[in-house]
Amino acid sequence: MNKINTSLIAMVVAGNLVSLSAKATVEPNVYGTVYQPVASVVPSQAQVIYYRSNEVTSPYAAHVYVDGEYQSALLTGMYTSFCIPAGEHSLGAFLKDAPYYKGKEAQPYRDNFVGGKTYFVKVGGDSSGKPILVSAQEASNDLKGLRAQVHTLNRASAVEQCRYIASKTMDYALSSDVLFNFGKSGRNDITQQGRQAINELIGKINKNGVQLNRIQVIGHTDPIGKPETNMRLGQQRANTVRTLLVQGGLPARNLSASSAGSEELVVNDCSGTRAEQIQCNAPNRRVVVRVQTQ
């Protein structure tokens, strides 16, 4: 059973959320999934990505409120993603909020949220609770490696299930064994066969992508080694492939790079000697280039 430190236990008593302590530490394996770029929502909704970057060192959870109602609690390195009806709303994230939960009354940021738009919001570093709106480009760097908040339940009545706009996407999977030597990730580590594969992919994308709205480069690794090492290796390989795609003429502004590490395996039952495991896990070592064309 996964363990959650008792300093971040939340209970629902008589319909109210009771936080036993604002100070929180959480076992790493109970965090949610690593952030991946989100799709667009329908015009009647606005999407909010609220996050707390890794640069924050405070051990206290930041309680997020929407229209004065509790939505989530963010520790350092966590994010929450939700949708609200287009229109006027308030947002705030408060540290050391217990036991009075002033975020229920204080609404430091109120604005009109445009339908179909995604807002990237960072937890502020002071006690005012006022959020920091950031650009999508800045957020994409901050959100790398951050994990979803999954420990508490949303209590904000304005929050609703996101309705995403269907988009046409194409996935191109490149074998890491073709691209790189085992365990390598840099530009100088790309094999000649790997460079040829990337050039061929650029040709396919230019041919098929009439209008390139977004290109995600996602690094995947096998489960051999430590998870944090695999996550870093996947990110480094994705960064390298992204650089080569940009050098090949694809628009840098539409290209993002991220890592799934060893979390999305296509082969799960490899065993035997290390050499046998490496060979068996070959399908897991890949870089996926996901192209959104509409």
Score class of each variant (00 low, 15 high):
Tyr79Thr: 07
Tyr100Val: 02
Ala73Asp: 08
Gly87Val: 12
Gly77Val: 05
Ser72Trp: 09
Ala61Arg: 11
Asp67Gln: 04
Val48Thr: 04
Pro99Thr: 03
Val66Gly: 07
Val48Pro: 01
Lys102Asp: 14
Thr57Trp: 11
Ser81Ala: 10
Ile49Trp: 01
Tyr51Cys: 08
Ala93Arg: 03
Glu69Pro: 06
Thr76Ile: 06
Ala98Pro: 02
Glu69Lys: 03
Ala86His: 11
His63Thr: 09
Tyr60Ile: 13
Gly92Ile: 01
Tyr50Leu: 04
Ser58Leu: 07
Pro85Arg: 05
Asn54Ile: 12
Val56Tyr: 11
Tyr51Gly: 04
Val48Trp: 05
Met78Phe: 12
Leu74Thr: 07
Phe82Ile: 02
Tyr50Val: 14
Phe94Pro: 02
Phe82Asn: 00
Ala73Lys: 01
Asn54Gln: 12
His63Cys: 06
Phe82Gln: 00
Tyr79Ile: 11
Ile49Val: 13
Asn54Lys: 10
Gly68Cys: 14
Pro85Ala: 07
Phe94Asn: 11
Phe94Ser: 10
Cys83His: 04
Gln47Glu: 06
Ala86Asp: 12
Leu91Arg: 03
Leu91Ile: 07
Val48Arg: 03
Lys102Pro: 10
Gly68Thr: 12
Gly92Trp: 10
Asp97Glu: 15
Lys102Ser: 15
Tyr70Asn: 03
Leu75Ile: 01
Ala62Asn: 05
Gly68Ser: 15
Ala61Lys: 13
Met78Val: 13
Glu88Lys: 12
Gln71Arg: 05
Pro85Thr: 04
Thr80Gly: 06
Gln47Met: 08
Tyr101Glu: 15
Ile84His: 00
Thr80Trp: 02
Leu91Thr: 03
Pro99Gln: 14
Leu74Ala: 15
Ile49Cys: 00
Tyr101Lys: 11
Thr80Cys: 10
Gln47Thr: 01
Met78Gln: 12
Ser90Cys: 11
Glu88Met: 12
Ser53Tyr: 02
Gln71Asp: 07
Ala93Pro: 00
Pro59Arg: 04
Phe94Trp: 15
Cys83Ser: 12
Gly68Phe: 14
Ala61Thr: 10
Asp97Phe: 14
Phe94Tyr: 15
Ala93Val: 08
Ala46Val: 11
Ser90Asn: 10
Ala98Trp: 15
Gly77Met: 07
Tyr70Ser: 03
Glu69Phe: 01
Leu95Asn: 08
Tyr79Asp: 06
Thr80Asp: 05
Tyr101Ile: 15
Val56Asn: 15
Pro59Asn: 09
Glu55Pro: 15
Tyr100Pro: 02
Ser53Thr: 10
Asp97His: 13
Asp97Tyr: 14
Glu55Cys: 14
Asn54Met: 13
Pro59Cys: 08
Gln71Met: 09
Gly77Ser: 04
Ala98Glu: 09
Leu74Ile: 08
Gly92Arg: 06
Tyr60Cys: 06
Ile84Asp: 00
Thr57His: 13
Ser90Lys: 06
Met78Leu: 14
Tyr51His: 08
Tyr70His: 09
Ser72Ile: 02
Gln71Gly: 01
Ala73Gly: 02
Ala73Pro: 00
Pro85Glu: 05
Ile49Asp: 00
Glu55Val: 15
Met78Asn: 04
Arg52Cys: 05
Tyr101Cys: 14
Pro99Trp: 15
Lys96Leu: 12
Gly68Tyr: 14
Arg52Thr: 10
Asp97Thr: 09
Ser72Glu: 04
Val66Ser: 11
Tyr70Glu: 01
Ala46Met: 09
Tyr65Val: 02
Asp97Gly: 09
Val48Lys: 03
Ile49Ala: 01
Ala86Gln: 13
Leu74Pro: 11
Tyr65Cys: 07
Ile84Leu: 07
Ser90Gln: 11
Tyr60Ala: 07
